[in-house]
């Protein structure tokens, strides 16, 4: 029901529990290369759990089902293996790491991925050049990059920093967890422009969002409604508009 059978990401009958409590109760979802899918749903429907399970966060127990990524068993990989193989999660709440400069963190991450791909590591100068090229529309100044990672960043700065990381790491599968939350309209536009700039035929994206407003700027190929740990409806971008108009209770029931 979710498009092609040879997706980059194939989630089959995925059941997940946290502390013994079932959160996801049989998710089926296929996302092909070049596609952008939106996952919408009310609070507590399991949206963030899905994002974390795909990224491999410890503490999320898969009780049944499977996830294939480029035909490989994603769930058997460690979080860093997934990242190095092109799975990226833009965090809803980016984590603060005091004393670790933002640039030096970004460089460590990019070089970890490059090492994995057999590419030479960037030195400080090369990396700075890359950052200046990639930050493009995101309005990220050098001053912000000199601060400790996410420490004292405004909500908008944190989210822009997530998109910058996505641009630098060039993932094949990007999961964006409520990247629009807490942003004013100008910040939302900047972030959306950043996301659109990264759309491409080789890259799949999963946009997790509570509201339809991000989808005004980033047009999804498919929209899925998550309710009670299952996908209750799927459709085109019109489904998002219908949700906005009628509410989750009506549509997802």
């Amino acid at each position: 029901m979710n498009g092609g059978t040879n997706g980059m990401l194939e989630i089959r009958n995925l059941h997940v529990a946290v502390d013994g409590k079932p959160i996801l109760n049989g998710i089926d979802l296929t996302v092909g290369a070049g596609e952008v899918h939106a996952i919408m749903g009310p609070n507590g429907s399991g949206k963030s759990t899905l994002a974390y399970v795909l990224a491999g966060r410890p503490g999320y127990e898969v009780t049944a089902g499977s996830v294939l990524y480029d035909g490989r068993d994603l769930l058997a990989m460690s979080p860093e293996e997934r990242a190095r193989n092109g799975v990226f999660l833009a965090f809803q709440y980016p984590v603060e790491i005091p004393g670790v400069g933002t640039t030096s963190f970004l460089k460590s991450a990019v070089n970890a991925v490059r090492r994995h791909r057999g590419l030479p590591e960037f030195d400080a100068m090369e990396f700075l050049k890359l950052v200046r090229e990639k930050r493009g529309l995101l309005k990220i100044e050098d001053e912000m990059l000199r601060r400790s990672l996410n420490v004292g960043f405004s909500g908008g700065e944190k989210k822009r920093n997530e998109i910058l990381q996505m641009a630098l790491l060039e993932p094949r599968l990007a999961v964006l967890d409520e990247t629009d939350s807490g942003l004013d309209i100008d910040a939302l536009r900047i972030v959306a422009d950043g996301i659109n700039a990264l759309r491409g035929p080789e890259r799949a994206m999963l946009l997790i969002t509570h509201y339809q407003r991000l989808l005004d700027y980033v047009q999804p190929d498919r929209v899925h409604v998550l309710a009670g740990g299952r996908i209750s409806r799927s459709g085109g971008k019109d489904l998002a508009l219908q949700l906005e108009k009628d509410g989750y209770a009506e549509v997802a029931a």
Binding site: P58, A83, F88, F91, L169
Partner: peptide
């Protein structure tokens, strides 16, 4: 923080 460790690992760094 487990959240700090996970954030770094999600960016490709080993534990």
């Amino acid at each position: 923080g487990d959240d700090q460790l996970f954030y770094c690992r999600q960016r490709g760094l080993s534990a």
